[in-house]
Amino acid sequence: MYQALSLFSKSWIFKRQDPKVAPEDLAQIHFLTESKAEQIWRDYVSQDQLHPDLFTEFDWPKKVPEELEINKVQWEKAWDSDLLELPEAVLAHCHHWGEDTTVYFCCHNEQIFELSWGVFKRTWKAFLFLDNGPILVGKKKKQALQFHSNGWVNLLLR
């Protein structure tokens, strides 16, 4: 189910001093095996597309949720600042998620990380070195986030 984080080609993002990932948080970041990642991708993200770059207007991450007043938030300013928290609108979008909610940070169908929402909130700056469209989904939650390299995050509903 899990493989060593050192097998992730960009594991350096978790070893930097800025942003610093505490050892106790690092121990709770799990890099899924390819087969487990493929299963999570199919179950939570897409049965048809293998990478966020391939999404079409028919895939749920491309759909704008009509019930959300705000569906796009700037993350880059918070990332560049000394503030540690995710932007307030992101936290508000995921307010149903408890600290121990299992989340999946999905880069593509073979590269997914499993951790808790609490750990993600503390380590999000490290994860956003991988900002080419990854999707964060919560286990058994309808809210989702997609981070883009242009500094914006889409607030989504599955």
Rank of each mutant, 00 (worst) to 15 (best):
M1T: 10
Y2K: 02
Y2G: 06
Q3G: 00
A4N: 04
S6I: 10
S6L: 02
F8I: 07
F8N: 10
F8E: 11
S9N: 10
S9G: 09
K10S: 11
Q17R: 05
K20S: 13
K20P: 01
E24N: 11
D25P: 06
D25Q: 03
A27R: 06
Q28W: 01
H30Q: 06
T33I: 05
T33W: 10
K36P: 04
K36S: 11
E38W: 01
I40Q: 03
Y44K: 14
V45H: 00
D48Y: 13
D48Q: 09
Q49M: 15
Q49F: 13
H51D: 02
L54M: 13
T56G: 05
T56H: 05
E57P: 12
E57R: 01
D59Q: 08
W60A: 14
P61I: 05
K63D: 10
P65K: 07
E67D: 14
L68M: 02
E69A: 13
V73M: 04
Q74V: 11
Q74I: 14
W75T: 06
E76K: 13
D80Y: 12
D80T: 09
D80L: 15
D82H: 03
D82G: 11
D82M: 07
D82C: 07
L83N: 02
L84V: 14
E85P: 08
A92I: 14
H96Y: 12
W97V: 04
G98K: 11
E99P: 00
D100L: 12
T102P: 04
F105N: 00
F105Q: 05
C106M: 07
C107D: 07
H108E: 15
H108D: 02
N109A: 14
N109S: 15
Q111V: 07
Q111N: 08
F113M: 03
S116K: 00
S116G: 11
S116V: 01
F120E: 06
R122D: 05
T123R: 06
W124D: 12
W124H: 03
K125P: 05
A126M: 03
L128W: 01
L128S: 01
L128R: 02
F129L: 10
F129W: 13
L130Y: 09
L130F: 07
N132A: 15
I135W: 03
V137F: 06
K139Q: 13
Q143T: 04
A144Y: 00
H148T: 13
S149C: 10
N150H: 05
N150C: 08
W152V: 11
N154D: 15
L157D: 09
L157T: 00
R158N: 15
